[in-house]
Nucleic acid binder design. Structure first.
Length: 999
DNA sequence: CCCCAACCGTA
DNA sequence: GTACGGTTGGGGG
């Protein structure tokens, strides 16, 4: 084990205890063997490992062990015979499970450790200190207070059931003393559950107060006579010896002679078949299926593993080797004739399961270029036919679904119809007879003008309510997988019609996980690329421009071809993409970081945010007047009227007529009129450029924000509903549009006024919580920079620290210019620094910027190493990875064009940093609503917006105090347990009546 | 009506 | 130096 490694120590006995009490007491296997605790233990361990163990990325942990108590005969018992004497014997049904749990641990391919005469806690303490000594990080999976004495900057605890990290601040908050004083505190308070004596009448509050006052236990005992409270003083003096004994009992031994050296705890790969075999024997059907899926092995082909156990009652013969009824693996549905025919069969290997990569390749080949006949689709016009299709979907467990509506805005759209596609012979081999159909519901006929009697519903459509009711059974049944392209749209659409889709996949997100950076992920592009097929263009059926109609006016036959084709194509895309996720080991990213975000974003979009139109209207007036005043002055100075907003005309005035010196040029060869150029001219003394810059700021604010935002207020909700895109950035960030609420001004005082128009509804506050310096923290984590890690651990000013390291200037009294330069360099590093860019940013010579960079790399050699290794990785693989394993592709990184290549290198350096931060906040978003609900705040605190490192909530006034710590904690711990960050994440939060004050 | 370039707002 | 989306002007059809 070495510096930078990360050891996870699971308190196995604690796990057993919690598992046993969390589950129904008498969970038994079919032969009567009680296995409730084993089941709970396996589920907890699996949950932890699913996030923590990875096969293809260097995610922590590197080492892992599960630690158990050996027996109740420990050195503490010899020291003090009453120790834990009040503990009753474990329940009878738990006894046979201890051995099984140790076997379970080994089936998980994890070291299972215990030592005679010592408790699990002593072993944990010993390993933790050993690992710490070699510079490794340690995470103890437990919430037991007895272990809190071990917490240091390098050693954390993690409560996997509550998803809560416990570090130094959490210990201080809970107990009022830092971890190193926990022993003193426990010695004073004692522990009734373990029968540790302590001082009567002294609990954690008093103990913390006394330790605060006297510093430590020895001082307190020596000077006990100074305690003012009579009773307390007497109690302590009378019990001094007992306190000393208690201290011996609560102090964990850090020098237990261990059989297994640290290095032997290295985390091995999961042995899928072995674990599946064990789980089958235990008859844990759900977990067996999950593990088989995740490890990509065929559970039906694995025999239950023989299991040893000690069991007193003869009634339960050990028939554990026999096959059980646990096999839930779905067999392939029978082949039925498909309406679109032309099946291509992919041969399976001898055991029926081709290797993932082979299946993916076979699927890709089978579907690419395969003809799609859009004339073969069916129009479903009655309920019986619809129900037959739904029954078929239930049969195969898989259906593609797509809605047709009157608008691309799902908040305003009305449902016009929907389409379904079914693969009749299932998904097992990839041979497919896909059939697809369109269900029109609200197509109209007639014209809505003076000469006709208005609009009528077209003939031959199922009544809306009846169709929705049938559809609800399909869409809300999680055992039927719904496949959609850009599911967020259909999910929100159906939610507005009272249906909450359960059990879904999204081909757009699958493509995004697999190919971010390679292509866009729209259906037309995917179809083109993966199927070699160009779907019917929307404008072919609905027209375009002025002559376009909404979908409810499209002829039903044309609509059928278009809509059913979308479902058909979606299903084919799924067939191609799904096995690729497995083959490329990206299932987890998809399932944990992408798919769960769909309902979260739907909720946020549906809620929207309230804006005060009066504020915006007043601001707009002010901005217009100010801009008009500038226009007069500008025309005066220019000597003529012209379109100030036209860079071309402006350039002619400035660099032609007025003869000012041009700065840089744009790529079309025109003189640039950018803010930078104009600022430079203003510095030379020319009066006009400054006024142009100011005019631009005012008109930008007016046109982009104060004038545009009111147009987005929804007529019914009276709120603004942005749309988030999950799949439009290479790095994993979200984007926001219509309106973009991720670029609302904040930097200038003038711009910030716009934020005051984003308000909470009466009785509520807006709560803004943002990560402090998350990207620099991620950098400190991935590049393992000691000074950065230390600075973040100590909570000091990171830019000042950088400046101090680089320029040798003390932090105290540092000139702001020095700090500003260091800050620019820090940002530059995140952006894949170049001397050219840094020089630009700081307005210094390129050679000087180059010197800065050189110096930085000398001071922080780890950064240079990180950059070089990231570039090398990107060149070799064509992509880079975030700390969670998300990929961003840079196919042009080997370009022969040097500037193109350099650009891709910088982007590749930036992507893991920006992308890891994006992953962290995604995880936070997925976790935060359940966390709020668990705190009894469901519907009292609702997440509205995400702005890359900030989450904005609307919270009922009297719930603000309760919600804030839940939100902050969830965000700060969002990386756990998938990744245990080597630097703490910090979140600042504030609540107010508007966004400006809350931020 | 569509698309691109330039510019500028955010993290 | 990274990542986005929106507005405007202006050219082409």
């Amino acid at each position: 084990m070495k510096k930078g490694d990360h050891l996870f120590l699971v308190d196995g006995s604690g796990f057993i205890f919690r598992a046993f009490h969390a589950l129904p007491p008498l969970t038994r296997k079919s032969d009567g063997l009680p296995v409730g605790a084993v089941s709970g233990f396996c589920n907890m361990l699996w949950k932890l490992l699913m996030d923590a163990r990875d096969t293809n990325v260097g995610v922590t942990p590197t080492h892992f062990a599960v630690i158990f108590d050996y027996s109740s005969k420990t050195f503490r018992k010899e020291l003090y015979p009453q120790y834990k004497a009040n503990r009753s014997a474990p329940p009878e049904e738990l006894i046979p499970q201890f051995g099984l749990i140790r076997q379970a641990t080994r089936a998980f391919n994890l070291p299972c450790i215990e030592a005679e005469g010592f408790e699990a806690d002593d072993l944990i303490a010993t390993y933790a200190r050993q690992a710490e000594a070699v510079g490794a990080d340690v995470t103890i999976i437990s919430s037991d207070k007895d272990l809190m004495q071990l917490v240091t900057p390098m050693v954390h605890m993690y409560d996997s059931m509550k998803d809560k990290q416990i570090g130094i601040p959490e210990v201080v908050e809970r107990w009022g003393v830092p971890p190193e004083k926990m022993i003193d505190l426990q010695s004073l308070t004692g522990d009734s559950t373990d029968n540790i004596p302590g001082v009567p009448g002294i609990g954690p509050k008093t103990a913390a107060q006394l330790l605060q006052e006297f510093g430590d236990l020895d001082t307190l005992l020596a000077r006990a006579g100074e305690i003012k409270q009579v009773k307390r003083r007497e109690n302590i003096i009378a019990n001094t010896e007992l306190v000393r004994l208690s201290r011996q009992l609560v102090t964990l031994k850090t020098d237990v002679p261990v059989d297994m050296p640290l290095d032997a705890l290295v985390l091995e790969k999961q042995d899928g078949p072995r674990l599946v075999g064990f789980l089958k024997t235990m008859e844990f059907t759900t977990l067996t299926r999950r593990v088989a899926e995740a490890c990509d092995c065929d559970a039906s082909a694995i025999d239950p593993a023989p299991v040893k156990f000690e069991w007193g009652a003869a009634a339960h013969g050990p028939d554990l080797d026999s096959a059980t009824s646990a096999d839930e693996e779905a067999s392939a549905p029978p082949v039925t004739g498909g309406e679109t025919g032309k099946a291509t069969t992919i041969a399976a290997t001898a055991n029926g399961d081709p290797a993932p990569a082979d299946l993916a390749a076979a699927r890709a080949a089978a579907f690419h270029g395969r003809k799609i006949d859009t004339t073969a689709y069916l129009t479903i016009r009655d309920l019986e036919a619809l129900n037959a299709w739904i029954a078929a979907a239930r049969e195969t467990g898989l259906v593609a679904f797509d809605t047709e509506t009157t608008s691309i805005d799902p908040m305003r759209a009305e449902l016009v119809g929907f389409s379904l596609a079914i693969a009749d012979n299932g998904q097992s081999t990839g041979s497919t007879d896909i059939r697809a159909a369109y269900v029109p519901l609200a197509h109209k006929t007639g014209r809505d003008d003076l000469f006709s009697d208005g609009l009528k519903l077209a003939e031959g459509q199922i009544p809306m309510q009846a169709a929705l009711s049938a559809l609800k059974d399909l869409l809300e049944d999680s055992s039927i997988l719904k496949v959609a392209q850009n599911l967020k749209y259909d999910y929100l659409m159906m939610k507005r019609y009272g249906i909450v889709i359960q059990g879904f996949d999204d081909t757009m997100l699958m493509s995004y996980v697999l190919d971010a950076g390679k292509t866009t992920h729209g259906m037309d592009a995917l179809s083109e690329r993966l199927l070699g097929h160009t779907p019917i263009a929307y404008k072919e059926v609905a027209g375009s421009g002025k002559s376009s109609v909404t979908f409810d006016f499209v002829d039903i036959d044309k609509a059928t071809a278009y809509a059913a084709e979308d479902a058909d194509v979606t299903l084919r895309l799924w067939m191609v993409l799904k096995p690729r996720l497995v083959a490329e080991k990206l299932t987890r990213i998809y399932e944990r970081l992408e798919r769960p975000l769909v309902p979260v974003l739907v909720d946020m979009e549906e809620r929207g945010i309230s804006i005060d139109r009066q504020i915006l209207s007043r601001l707009s007036g002010e901005l217009g007047q100010k801009a008009a005043a500038f226009e007069d002055e500008i025309y005066e100075l220019a000597g003529e009227r012209f379109n100030i907003g036209s860079p071309k005309q402006l350039g002619d005035i400035l660099f032609g007529k007025m003869g000012l010196p041009g700065g840089s040029k744009t790529k079309t060869g025109q003189w640039s009129t950018s803010a930078q150029v104009l600022e430079d001219l203003a510095a030379e003394g020319a009066p006009l450029p400054r006024k142009i810059v100011d005019w631009r700021q005012l008109t930008k604010l007016k046109s982009t924000y104060t004038d545009a935002l009111p147009g987005f207020v929804h007529p019914e909700t009276k709120r603004v509903h942005t749309s988030y895109s999950l799949a439009s950035t290479t790095t994993g960030r979200l984007s926001s549009s219509e309106p973009n609420l991720q670029n609302i001004p904040v930097r200038t005082a003038e711009g910030r006024k716009i934020r005051t128009a984003f308000v909470s509804t009466p009785g509520h506050k807006l709560l803004s919580a943002d990560y402090s310096q998350i990207e620099l923290r991620v950098l400190a984590h991935v590049a393992e920079i000691p000074q950065l890690r230390q600075a973040f651990a100590d909570g000091i000013d990171i830019h000042a620290m950088t400046a101090s390291e680089m320029f040798g200037v003390p932090v105290e009294g540092m000139p702001s210019e020095v700090r500003r330069r260091a800050k620019a360099i820090n940002f530059g590093i995140i952006y894949g620094i170049s001397a050219f860019g840094l020089a630009n940013q700081l307005g210094i010579e390129r050679s000087e910027a180059g010197d800065y960079i050189k110096k930085y790399f000398e001071r922080f050699p780890g950064i240079k190493d990180y950059m070089e290794s990231t570039k090398a990785f990107a060149r070799e693989h064509g992509y880079v990875e975030t700390i969670f394993g998300r990929r961003a592709h840079y196919p042009e990184i080997k370009s022969s064009n040097p500037s193109m290549r350099a650009f891709n290198e910088r982007a590749a350096i930036n992507a893991p940093i920006q992308g890891s931060a994006a992953d962290v906040i995604r995880r936070a978003m997925i976790k935060v609503e359940p966390a709020l609900a668990a705190a009894g705040l469901r519907e009292k605190a609702r997440m509205l917006l995400q702005v890359h490192d900030e989450l904005i909530f609307e919270v009922e006034d009297d719930a603000v105090d309760a919600a804030m710590p839940v939100i902050v904690r969830t965000m700060e711990h969002a990386a756990m347990p998938a990744v245990s960050m080597r630097v703490p994440l910090k979140v600042d939060a504030r609540a107010a009546d508007n966004w400006d004050e809350a931020h």
